[in-house]
Design a protein around this nucleic acid. Structure first.
Lengths: 158, 158
DNA sequence: TTTTTTGCAAAACCTTTGCAGTTGG
DNA sequence: CCAACTGCAAAGGTTTTGCAAAAAA
């Protein structure tokens, strides 16, 4: 198959540490930023705190709005933090990317295209699915960037 | 889980006919457009032909450029045709959506985030995976809108 | 003749980049 | 002090919308 993913060089590529990171406190996050050569400006601290506190992934614009920061600065921070393996983002539909801290309560997603309901599940719950993909394609799948799209049980029966 | 897919009302929602459509000729496509109350302007004919001829999904801009049509018109056409269940689009990465005719050689996708390689497979090859998802979540998955993202066999061994 | 579709222009939306000034270490 | 980071402004890439003219049925 002679296709390449669009979006420029490594559009989808981010840091993928062999050891999945896990942060139990903001201090651990902060330490990891420093370890990666990053500085801890006030905006960056605020962004990290917002992500740490949020249970659902958040859009960059939303973070900027809530913290009264410049969107450009928020995007740059998220990009850098993603490079450090501290943050990731998911595309649940056609809207903006949604950002979250890695590790702490990581989730993978299913989106029903009939009712738009998003189901967030712990990655382990998709291990059987991942296994089937591994068996058939030798491919190690991750549903944290793009969700599984389809029809949920409720909509299928209706 | 209290999330909704972003991107406006029914952003991901398209026509999902119970009987999957299948077109063996442009004439069948044309007939289906008419059956859906659509007209067959020259631009629309050209777009349909371009899609019919193409083996890989194509960006709207690319279609517009090649056919010397207005991008707005191409987008409107693709949107309408998608509503009629004749066309669909996939997001393989962060670039533009890529459009193709439904039915004729339908494909689902795996994208390696290390090397950006796109693997297009016949839907049947993902039936075991779909089965695992159905068993675990009662969810009928479709990998034609968002691909399965992860690490391909080559990159995993490297 | 009526409704759809077109092209053009402009805007909307999400994200990135350039730059000069500020700040963290 | 110096590299990293900031805000602001502007631009980039993708897609949508408004509108008057043209074309399909």
């Amino acid at each position: 198959v002679a296709l390449r993913a669009p979006g420029g060089e490594g559009a989808l590529t981010r840091a993928h540490p062999a050891e999945p990171l896990h942060f139990d406190s903001l201090d651990e996050v902060v330490a990891h930023v420093r370890a990666g050569g990053g500085r801890l400006s006030l905006p960056r601290r605020l962004i990290l705190e917002a992500l740490f506190v949020s249970d659902a992934p958040v859009a960059a614009e939303e973070i900027a709005r809530r913290l009264e920061l410049d969107p450009a600065s928020v995007y740059r921070n998220l990009e850098k933090l993603e490079g450090l393996g501290i943050v990731r983002h998911v595309h649940l539909g056609h809207g903006p990317g949604l950002y979250s801290l890695v590790g702490r309560g990581a989730r993978e997603y299913l989106v029903c295209e009939r009712c738009d309901r998003v189901t967030a599940v712990a990655p382990e719950r998709l291990d059987a699915v991942r296994g089937a993909i591994r068996d058939d394609f030798g491919f190690e799948a991750r549903f944290g960037h793009f969700p599984i799209v389809g029809t949920c049980a409720d909509c299928a029966s209706a």
